[in-house]
């Protein structure tokens, strides 16, 4: 058990981070060079002011008409994404590992709060699953990969919650937790999870078009 633990926290963790960073950089580079070659207009019309204007509206809860039409989705999406980012970065157990490995540390979330935020992520994944199954317009679009991605995102939080509470079999669960986190990292550049990096560009481009050519709002 100990050697598996060393493996998943050692070489495999390095590999996961390398694939995550390298893969993301590669996707960015290949999209950028393809855009330079084929979509020169994107660079012509991209406009920082209007891109930020649009992104700002879409990052503000209830800042767009569609968010108001779908209030439950709005609340869940914002809560989900905020917790999804903050928990792994600021949960005490993770920060300790950075401290032990690299002697760097930062602010940590109080245990109860991190616990609640983890539940928010798990609940949100449940909500997304419910939408996928129950809403015809979402189900029509859903593929097996969409369920898989949802599972990949939920897994580190379910296992993390388990480990934190030290429920039965938590040593095995710890390894599964680390593994699932690594799987998620590796999945980001090669799946639709990459939207986390593309969002500013797609939204920003539409915002630029609407702002400087169409002279209309896009929210």
């Amino acid at each position: 058990m100990h050697s598996i633990y060393s493996f998943v926290t050692g070489p495999l963790a390095w590999l996961a981070f390398i694939v995550f960073i390298g893969g993301s950089a590669f996707r960015f580079y290949s999209l950028y060079s393809l855009a330079r070659k084929k979509d020169a207009l994107v660079f012509e019309y991209m406009n920082l002011k209007f891109a930020l204007r649009s992104i700002g509206h879409w990052l503000t809860p209830f800042g767009t008409r569609n968010m108001n039409l779908n209030p439950a989705m709005t609340v869940v999406t914002f809560a989900f994404h905020i917790c999804l980012f903050l928990v792994p970065l600021f949960v005490f157990a993770h920060v300790i590992m950075w401290k032990e490995s690299f002697n760097i540390s930062w602010f940590t979330l109080p245990g109860v709060l991190a616990d609640l935020m983890t539940l928010v992520v798990i609940f949100s994944c449940g909500f997304f699953l419910y939408r996928r199954i129950m809403l015809p317009e979402v189900r029509y679009l859903t593929t097996a990969v969409d369920y898989l991605i949802l599972f990949i995102v939920a897994a580190p939080f379910i296992t993390g919650f388990w480990v934190y509470h030290q429920w039965a079999g938590f040593p095995t669960m710890t390894i599964l937790h680390i593994l699932s986190g690594e799987i998620m990292l590796v999945a980001i550049p090669f799946t639709k999870l990459f939207h986390m990096f593309l969002f500013p560009f797609t939204r920003g481009y539409m915002g630029s078009e609407f702002g400087s050519v169409r002279m209309a709002k896009d929210w």
């Binding site: 999209l31 393809l34 084929k38 569609n66 039409l69 029509y140 679009l141 969409d146 639709k192 939207h195």
Partner: peptide, 22 residues
């Protein structure tokens, strides 16, 4: 005739269905 734009549009869509009300 197409490039990064089409690729990004098709790859980025997370199948959330929120466009429906549009």
């Amino acid at each position: 005739e197409t490039g990064a734009r089409l690729k990004t549009y098709v790859d980025t869509c997370v199948h959330c269905g929120l466009c429906s009300d549009g």
